[in-house]
Amino acid sequence: MDAVAGRVAGGATVEFRPTGSSMVPLVRSRQQVTVAPADPSKLAVGDIVLARVAGTVYLHLVSAVDPARKRVQISNNRGRVNGWTGHNRVFGICLAVDGVPRTGASGKTRRDA
């Protein structure tokens, strides 16, 4: 996931197949996801993002936003909160899962991406 995060942070839109069950049913293990560089200031609860929290990169949900402190809370889809992370550690937003677009996600990408 670190390599994917690096590519997205560098401005690339990336397709990959994450593993694990923490995001079921939104993302099942090995489903293809499309992730583009995110504009963290536009993120909302329910967005799926690629972000680093406490040293680990996750493809997880935004569960809370704190615009004043420029940070978001990251959680899986099973109720586990990973923690808060700064906008500078939110690399991308999930645009599609297995080719099905995520509603509203395309308007939250970085303009320079």
Score class of each variant (00 low, 15 high):
W84C: 06
G55D: 02
V49C: 10
D112S: 09
G79W: 10
A36C: 07
P67S: 04
N82M: 11
G10V: 06
V90I: 04
K42F: 05
A105D: 03
A5P: 09
N77D: 09
L59A: 05
M1Q: 14
S63V: 04
R69G: 02
V72R: 02
D98N: 14
T13N: 00
V53C: 04
L43N: 02
V90Q: 05
A5Q: 04
K42C: 05
V33G: 03
L95A: 04
R110W: 07
V8F: 06
E15P: 14
N88H: 14
Q31G: 03
G55L: 05
V24Y: 12
P67T: 03
S22I: 02
A3P: 13
A38L: 07
V27Y: 14
I93D: 01
I93H: 08
T56N: 15
M1P: 14
A9N: 13
W84D: 06
C94Q: 07
S75R: 01
S21L: 15
L61A: 09
A68K: 13
A3I: 13
A96E: 09
K108G: 01
S106F: 10
S29I: 05
D39L: 01
T34L: 01
P25V: 06
P67A: 00
A12I: 12
R78T: 11
Q31C: 09
A12N: 07
V65C: 06
R80M: 15
V62M: 05
T34Y: 07
V4C: 11
R110Q: 04
I48H: 09
G92A: 00
V53S: 06
R71K: 09
N77I: 12
V57G: 05
A44H: 14
R52F: 13
A68S: 13
V33A: 02
P101A: 06
V4Q: 09
N82G: 13
G11Q: 03
A9W: 08
V90P: 00
S29L: 08
L26H: 14
R69Y: 07
V97I: 01
M1G: 14
G10W: 12
G20W: 11
P40L: 00
P18H: 02
H87F: 15
A9L: 13
G92R: 00
A105H: 03
H60C: 07
V49H: 09
V72E: 00
G79N: 01
T109E: 15
K108S: 02
G83I: 01
G107I: 01
V53P: 07
T109S: 09
G86T: 03
P18Y: 06
A64C: 01
D2V: 08
V33P: 12
I48W: 09
G6C: 12
R111Y: 15
A51I: 10
L59Q: 06
L61V: 03
D66W: 06
K108C: 00
G86K: 10
A9I: 05
S29Y: 04
V24N: 15
G55I: 01
Q32S: 15
N88C: 13
P25S: 11
G46N: 01
R80T: 15
F16G: 12
S75K: 06
P67I: 00
R17H: 12
T13A: 09
K42D: 04
T85V: 03
R7T: 13
A68N: 11
N82W: 15
R78L: 08
M23Q: 07
G99D: 10
K42G: 06
R7K: 08
V57S: 05
P101M: 05
